[in-house]
Design a protein around this nucleic acid. Sequence first.
RNA 1: GCCGAGGUGGCAGAAUGGUUAAUGCGACGGACUGCAGAUCCGUUUCCUGGGGGUUCGAUUCCCUCCCUCGGCUCCA
Length: 497
Amino acid sequence: MAQVTDRPPAPRPVRIHDTLRGGVVPLVPRVSPRVGMFVCGLTPYKPSHLGHGRTFVFFDVAARFLRQQGYRVFYLQNVTDLDDKTLAQAREERTSYFDVSERNFSEYVRDMERLGVRSVNLYARCTDYVPEILAQIQELVTKGLAYPGPTGDVYYEVGRFPAFGALSRQRMEEVRPGARVEVDPHKRAPEDFVIWKGGNPDEPAWPSPYGPGRPGWHIEDTAITVSVLGARYEIHGGGAELKFPHHEAEIALAEGATGLTPLAQIWMHAGLLNMRGEKMSKSLGNVVGLGETLREQPADRVRFFLLSGLYRSPLEFAGEESFAEAGRGLERLRVPYDRLRVLRADAENAGADHRRALGTSSQEASGRAVEAIRGALAEDFNVRQAVAEMFAWGREVNGLLQGGESFTAGDLDLLLEPFRFADESLGFLELSEQVAPSFAPPPEISALVDLALKARESARRRGDFGEADRIREELSSAGFRLEDTPQGPRWKRKEGR
RNA sequence: GCCGAGGUGGCAGAAUGGUUAAUGCGACGGACUGCAGAUCCGUUUCCUGGGGGUUCGAUUCCCUCCCUCGGCUCCA
């Protein structure tokens, strides 16, 4: 007899590309099904751009999918709310660093909400973790891995950590120190990096054994992750440009301080968004603002576009044309999905019949589609493959609906399942629903549209196509799109915001 | 210079040691329509950077060259 337990089913296997090991590896949580996931967040000294959107939309999909597969994910993102650039920006604006980073950060959070990013459990601000940062610095100094310099700075001594460079597969003798940034003469070695920045009287500072100062860049992440996720956790993600030196530094700091290894089981790196072949970045000045984009483009298109390539590869952004193309592709999925949903709502109103009248071949096809989507996402989050499966399922559904037969609520649920399953992770159909609901507007408006439709139908019956087209045109400019189908005329709201 | 990721059709972008190399966009044709749209069916025959090698078979594995992007202590 089957044992009844409260235990949830074991999470489904998922494989992920790990930069450190250089291949796709199975995710094996230390304490299954718990997964600690940290993603390097942004430095909100300026408004965020579309490239940020790509990275964070992707990691949202990753977290959602892992949860869907039965993992209990704690998704942590840091916020570098204080650094040199933030201070420079604050000086320029004649305001405080706090003002600058809070403003840009809250705008970022709003943009993420618009993009349907809803999987982050905690945004951790660097300045909220100064005691943890100082404790870690203390630990490193005590262990002889870090040393204070004459100006109140504290440095990490890279030479003491032999594995430095393993992640990016670089030999430290080969890197060119100072290739782009001046070398601080107080360091013992040029590759050493600052973990505590000695106080400049004009800058915000916290007291420390080394004098007043503020956290350096790399250490904030390790202090935050170690205190929130522990000394070892499952996934560490970020943009590809962070591999060296930032992620190398994090490994050196955390493993140096805790003595435990590996810091992260899997290192994930998201490919950059390119614009005319060049990466989009604040320092190159070729940025397309995220907030600005979301004011001009429906969010579902933006999300769909940002997911249109594999996360590890660079993605080409060609401006408005990219969104237009994404919109057309998305529409192809929305047509079958919306039709099913409308039919499902009608079935509910008519008293849901949950029996399945559909042939077994359709039932099996639905199950196969779900498994194909799961399989694609379970193999290093192959979003593109999953979307291809959605297109295939859409064609299947369109064909079925064209047949004109009627479906029970149970049938419709079955036909909806692949879309629902995919979108639980991918999340663009759910956004479409907000951008342009597939269901009728308030009844008084529906009644008016239906009235106009009747007038058009009688004009068509009279053969007065001029009048019929005029009505169609007017409805169109009022935001309703008309379609004649074998089952009679239909209308839906046009995409808007 | 060193390290990493890449180079696939008109465009975006997957996959694979093996029958016709996904999928979407675009284009073209057919069905449906008064027209349009949506949808369905079909077409888009010589598309895997160059050159070697391994193999019965390479786009996939190896070598080499060329090119692009990223990194070499600011960066999603």
